[in-house]
Write a protein that binds this DNA or RNA. Structure first.
Lengths: 283, 283
DNA sequence: CGAGCAGACTGGTCTAGACCTCATGATGTG
DNA sequence: CACATCATGAGGTCTAGACCAGTCTGCTCG
């Protein structure tokens, strides 16, 4: 159909994009796509090639197969992954205009807790940024950020950066992943006055470590007004979800536990919450 | 026909499990697995079949392919997805013994906020469970749970269930996914006394909606002691990460945005946080 | 000694079939 | 009318090759 010879260097890509376009423009959730044998005729390809195209969309969660029935447009998926986002992005995506007041931007010696979080030695030099972040003119959050000087000597040349993540990227420390530890607390007097709190002193604290390819690149502590900030977290079902595989009939008696080839790799985030901790990963 | 020796009804499963076992017991991260052609000889299979086995482990993130070099054990993955876990599971996984004191278990009329969360009409009947949850004898959390009576009429027959998730599963309302909205707050007097709080009244609140295949099945409000409970959240890198695909040559000029077949389906969680909200999904 | 190229790998794509299981609806039959 | 059966067609698995495209090593030639 697509008369343009266009880019698709690989045949299965043309089929995949054809199907993706169908899903986007013509089909609704639950509709069936053309059968694999139809597609082989339509594109003049072998069935294995067509299946490769369908497989790609199935593993992306766009389509679901049902043996004996057909292949259907999958129900809309939810992104169950939390993303490393910046305060500015976060506010703008909610239609608010972010602003920042820098209180301090200097190089200091790492305190023990900061050194531990950043995996450096205590008293190593670290960039320190201390600022109040507002949205639509109202203070939302007090933020403290530390970055080892050794990793990015020139980080604050040219003044404190508007976006730490952009600055890190420029320094070759692009954020790869991170971890938040969220807790509630009473605001200190300083925090209460910076945030303009009255009687209600509860705040939401977030300690975040941001990792680049080489390890911990940034540590931050944020303190949010409890009355203006909440955090939305999507939760996936417990264990068995996308696991049509798994030796379900045999096994259990045969091999010496053939390894968890399911979709959950046990991991060790290397940093357990200080108190009781809950949810996410498995420290 | 199961229980027969060989153990795998499908040849590619034997290869997949063989490789999974190799990865688990003999190989280290970065090690190469046998080449696909080796495996075809070793198992007497065609290459497509071997590839199917390897594909399975690649899409699970256990292996990574590198054209021209080989297929290697992938670096340890982190689970970036938060799971719907129960309080009991959560505490036990941290080596603490959970306990529960039920304060109320009855059927009540849904208040407007509960009705909205559960997508029912105000004053519809809902099961209501009110309990204090402890770990190692210390109160950790006050929990209120609502479930529409219409969905599970017999939910509390036989007394309030020890695990709501188990009860929901038994009622055919197995949790499929959920969403938490986390915030900080001051404890009420009642909460403070139930949790045994002193001066420090900050608490971490979690509103959770749990969905089964048919929609909202349960709504809960939990109130955690701030000094004993924190939440750990893994964060994935921002946008461009696992997206080697996508029409890179053509497109952008051809069709009107050929659909996001990347790994981030834009979604609408249908329930935006009351205040500013942050992180996760994209309301 | 060093640059370069050839060959021997690796995975990536593709074919033209085959036979299997499963879901469904039409067709019979009691 | 109700239930069993069967044909049809869907996806699931599998074969025995083919050629393409990167990677790496070692040998040869300047």
């Amino acid at each position: 159909m697509d008369e343009f010879e266009h880019g698709a260097a690989h045949k299965y890509l043309t089929v995949r994009d054809h199907l993706a376009t169908l899903v986007a423009h013509e089909l609704k959730v639950g509709d069936a796509i053309p059968s694999e044998r139809d597609l082989t005729k339509q594109f003049g390809l072998s069935r294995m090639t067509v299946r490769q195209a369908v497989d790609a969309l199935v593993t992306e969660g766009v389509l679901v197969r049902e043996q004996g029935r057909g292949t259907f447009v999958a129900p809309q998926r939810i992104d169950f992954e939390m993303r490393l986002t910046t305060f500015g992005e976060e506010m703008r995506s909610r239609g608010m205009e972010p602003a920042t007041t820098v209180l301090t931007a200097q190089v200091v010696a790492a305190t023990p807790d900061v050194a531990t979080a950043l995996e450096v030695e205590p008293r190593d030099k670290v960039h320190y940024l201390y600022r109040v972040r507002s949205a639509d003119g109202t203070p939302m959050c007090i933020e403290q950020v530390w970055v080892p000087v050794a990793l990015a000597p020139a980080l604050f040349d040219g003044g404190p950066p508007a976006s730490m993540y952009a600055a890190l990227r420029d320094a070759g420390l692009a954020p790869e992943w991170g971890e938040d530890t969220l807790s509630a607390d009473e605001a200190t007097d300083t925090e209460a006055s910076l945030l303009g709190l009255g009687d209600k002193r509860a705040v939401l604290r977030a300690e975040r470590r941001t990792f680049s390819v080489d390890g911990a690149a940034m540590f931050s502590r944020a303190c949010y007004r409890a009355d203006r900030y909440s955090i939305w977290v999507p939760l996936r079902a417990p264990r068995p979800t996308l696991v049509p595989r798994r030796r379900s009939t045999q096994a259990d008696t045969t091999s010496p536990e053939p390894v968890t080839t399911g979709s959950d790799a046990t991991t060790t985030p290397a940093h357990a919450p200080a108190t009781a901790g809950a949810s996410g990963g498995r420290p």
